[in-house]
């Protein structure tokens, strides 16, 4: 895996400095209808963009170079190969992150544009909120009648989508598996009681619920209601992978109850990065939807 990643990085870097577009031509000359559509969409009422002396909004620079639905004709095989390598590595999605433009002279209706693009850099593999991927930076020089009119540096992230988002309405917490061995525990939760099993023979407490005593093997038991005090014995912060109904990052605590047993639960009321070992917490019952109530532990206010 490491070797593959290093190998891919080296292959991607080889494209730095190569042309991405050679002698590209704007599909349309600079024209008033496209300027007007742009201004309408953006709510731009600047009078400089209308009338007989109209100029194009300078920020339209890139729009004149876009391939549209028909795509680019002057794109090099080098650029297609680079994007293809990234697709094959799973980085199928793309998002633009940076745009730097310099305008050397105004563009006016009738200007015919040509442009050349070079691949400036390809980053190492980066982990982002959207997913892991590579930043690709290009620079385009745009000419009107052969004269440099503007430059456009553009950075995209080609990434492997971290997750497929579901509409929020479908996101429900997983249901607990309730069976004969643990039904008493969930019946207690329904009454807002956290019940710990106790062996009626050796009096050992046990949690989670099990059919037999972990100390002596006795099958008879009764329960003790937890007073609800505890401390964070240990914890992890979940960043990845995300699950429906959970919103990472969040802290999962191993809570040591005052009675001495430990249970896994959410720590609430404290930012995920402020949870600490030894932090005192207090039991609460939280309703997640119309049928699910869970015991959780509140920190910070004890």
């Amino acid at each position: 895996m490491e070797d593959d990643a290093a190998d891919l990085s080296a292959r991607l870097k080889a494209y730095e400095g190569m042309p991405a577009t050679v002698a590209g031509r704007g599909k349309d000359p600079v024209n008033l209808p496209m300027i007007r559509h742009w201004c309408e969409a953006l709510g731009d009422t600047n009078p400089a963009y209308t009338g007989p002396d109209a100029i194009a909004p300078p920020t339209m620079l890139q729009a004149w170079t876009m391939g549209g639905l028909a795509g680019h004709t002057a794109r090099t095989t080098a650029y297609d190969e680079l994007l293809g390598l990234l697709d094959m590595a799973g980085c199928t999605a793309v998002v633009a992150t940076d745009c730097e433009q310099e305008y050397l002279r105004p563009l006016r209706p009738g200007d015919e544009l040509t442009f050349d693009t070079v691949i400036e850099s390809v980053s190492d593999r980066k982990t982002t909120k959207l997913g892991a991927g590579y930043f690709v930076t290009t620079r385009t020089d745009i000419r009107a009648a052969g004269e440099l009119a503007g430059t456009h540096r553009f950075r995209i992230l080609k990434y492997a989508p971290a997750r497929q988002q579901q509409p929020p309405s479908r996101d429900r917490r997983p249901r607990p598996v309730v069976n004969r061995d643990n039904a008493g525990f969930w019946a207690g939760v329904e009454r807002h009681e956290l019940l710990i099993q106790r062996c009626t023979d050796c009096r050992s407490l046990r949690f989670p619920w099990l059919p037999g005593c972990t100390a002596c093997g006795c099958l008879d038991w009764d329960t003790v209601r937890a007073v609800g005090e505890g401390t964070v014995h240990s914890y992890v912060v979940m960043h990845h992978p995300p699950f429906p109904a959970f919103d990472p990052p969040y802290a999962v605590g191993l809570i040591e109850l005052a009675e001495g047993v430990r249970m896994v639960s959410n720590v609430i009321g404290v930012p995920y990065d402020k949870v600490r070992i030894g932090m005192p917490v207090r039991l609460e019952f939280r309703r997640y939807d119309e049928e699910l109530v869970l015991p959780v532990f509140r920190g910070g206010t004890v």
Partner: peptide
């Protein structure tokens, strides 16, 4: 990018000329 440009020219008026716009 266009909205950032519009914000500047809305404020400084139609004779203001954009020279560079860089956004992240």
């Amino acid at each position: 990018n266009g909205l950032v440009g519009r914000y500047i020219t809305d404020h400084f008026g139609p004779t203001a000329a954009l020279r560079k716009v860089a956004v992240r």
